[in-house]
Design a protein around this nucleic acid. Structure first.
Lengths: 211, 211
DNA sequence: TCTTATCAGTAACAAAGGTTACATAGCTTA
DNA sequence: TAAGCTATGTAACCTTTGTTACTGATAAGA
């Protein structure tokens, strides 16, 4: 775990903090699709992402989902942080998008390190900053963009996160994450294919050029 | 300024911190409509709200607005906090909704107090927590609700913030904050009037029962 | 190979919300 | 009081998105 931690966080944290993390952190490796957090769960630890990606989802009254954003290497879950403090329940669902490695920090350390380490304070604030902005962008997209634009952004982001030009999802799955319906997504995807931005296959989509 | 500070924040902050705030804080009183922050501005200070309310708005590419949420007594602007740290520009616009009193804290104190005062750390984290959840609720409303529901929530919230059953806004202004169009809002308001939830007048709306 | 389940394509229709255009109502001020 | 401005009401129409229903394509397994 030590090399992984140093690679992802070595430039951020002072040595003493790295040491503390090694002492109290738990290394965890989860496969794609693994559910890390469910809505309503109490938060037991704070994750530091070492590799892979986690998707964060919100749910409506009917139980349908909406993708909020992805967490990547170097990220942590700000929702988790806030939840720790107040002992409140999770407002979101978190699912590994790819195989993911992470280090779990016991929440009681949060407080301690925030007082003790300047680099930790910076990290925590940076995380919040990053997360708020990410959430604002998601909100922009939902409030201001039409579904075709949202779909293009979704495909582009998904390709980036998975480091691959092929999206391994059904139209139904995409519709679900965009909080839309399968027929609408199929329709829009077909249009994107007609203008040579993508190619459609059963169970996957090849991205040609989404610029 | 000392009584106002104690009333709003006395139960949150330890005495030494209250003292520090009194030393470096600047008391500020602004009228309704006053623009406290513009998109792209660099952030000079962090506001502690003493009384009144501030509305926080987001803008799309065309320059049209969307109301995100209100700040009230005891709140601070988390966006500001994040901006302070990274020296980045504001992502939002902030306008006094009512006459408002606030205390401005120089941003350099943020770091210092976070290390020094436990109560300040708690306050900052609580603020982030509150803000993230507020933003999630806004997002829910936009992603999951139809315009009629959003309008009802808007009116209810506006009445609460202004502590008044009369909304002093034109349909155009409401449309603007909901990122909709005047005709749509007039249409929906008329429906609300027909089912005896509101009464419509020129330049204001009387709320009867929005339960 | 045949069966079955899942996935994708498409047409027809419905609903929500946005746009344009115009009428009228209500203030304000000359 | 008349003129003019702004706010509101409303009809007609358009676009986007969602829904229902059915079809054919593809893959996996018996």
């Amino acid at each position: 775990m030590i090399q992984e931690l140093k690679i992802s966080y070595g430039h951020l944290f002072e040595d003493a903090l790295i040491n503390d993390i090694l002492h109290v952190g738990t290394f965890k490796e989860v496969p794609a699709g693994y559910k890390l957090m469910e809505i309503g769960d109490y938060v037991r630890g704070m994750p530091l992402l070492v590799s892979g990606a986690i998707k964060v989802l919100r749910e409506d009254k009917e139980g349908d989902e909406l993708l909020l954003y992805y967490l990547e290497q170097g990220d942590t879950c700000s929702m988790t942080m806030t939840c720790c403090m107040g002992q409140t329940k999770s407002e979101i669902r978190a699912i590994a998008e790819t195989d993911t490695k992470l280090i779990m920090i016991p929440i009681r350390k949060m407080e301690e390190w925030t007082a003790k380490y300047k680099s930790w304070r910076n990290f925590v604030f940076e995380s919040y900053h990053h997360r708020l902005n990410e959430l604002l962008q998601t909100l922009d997209s939902i409030a201001f963009d039409r579904m075709d634009e949202r779909l293009i952004n979704y495909l582009r982001e998904k390709a980036r996160i998975n480091k691959e030009d092929i999206i391994h999802n059904t139209h139904q799955e995409i519709a679900y994450e965009l909080h839309s319906s399968r027929v609408v997504i199929s329709r829009l995807l077909k249009k994107l294919e007609q203008i040579n931005k993508i190619e459609l296959y059963r169970n996957h989509i090849k991205i040609l050029d989404l610029s």
